[in-house]
């Protein structure tokens, strides 16, 4: 009788240990740390393609379990795999990554309104009021958030030249 009882208790304990949610899963500090680790895996393009306003809000939603891990197109398969690994879930099919692009300002048309400066989440556009603006190509993530605010439609997304990245 005793061995059976022991076995039952052991099994129960093991079952509980396996099914229990991750330690401190409801704890605020643990949630913040989880968010931080998820955010660190995102490409930080701040493009909003996931439906959230930037990478951090998406990371928070994933940490709370509200968003799926396959919402980040710029991150592609690598990000999905890394998130699945971190969260211990099955990887989902990766979203199609948009081609690498970079914003270019048509200098003839730019009126120096500074609206795109505010829109660029990663400060990749330099300029001053009434002076021509320009995109620092190396810093541009190609998110396209600068396009809608431009009153003269002088910003275009162009494919990244192939040689970039080799240097």
């Amino acid at each position: 009788m005793l061995p059976w009882l022991l076995l039952a208790i052991l099994g129960l304990a093991a079952g509980l240990a396996v099914t229990r949610p991750a330690r401190g899963g409801r704890d605020d500090a643990a949630l913040a740390e989880k968010t931080e680790r998820i955010d660190a895996l995102l490409p930080q393009t701040q493009c909003g393609l996931c439906g959230y306003h930037g990478c951090r809000p998406y990371a928070e939603a994933v940490a709370r379990g509200e968003a799926a891990i396959d919402r980040c197109p710029p991150g592609g398969a690598a990000t999905v795999a890394a998130l699945a690994d971190l969260l211990g879930v099955e990887p989902l099919p990766a979203p199609v990554s948009p081609p690498a692009r970079v914003a270019v300002i048509d200098e003839r048309l730019c009126i120096g309104c500074t609206l795109c400066l505010d829109a660029c989440p990663v400060d990749a556009i330099v300029g001053a009021p009434r002076l021509m603006h320009t995109v620092i190509a190396a810093l541009c993530t190609g998110c396209g958030l600068c396009l809608p605010p431009c009153p003269v439609d002088c910003i275009q997304l162009r494919p990244v030249p192939a040689a970039r990245g080799a240097g």
């Binding site: 930080q44 701040q46 990478c55 690598a78 400060d123 810093l139 990245g165």
Partner: peptide, 19 residues
């Protein structure tokens, strides 16, 4: 390439937070 991406993401994030 992955390390370059990782570095770029960290820099993007820094600029985004300052922004």
């Amino acid at each position: 390439a992955a390390e370059r991406r990782q570095r770029a993401a960290a820099e993007n994030r820094g600029r985004y937070e300052r922004h």
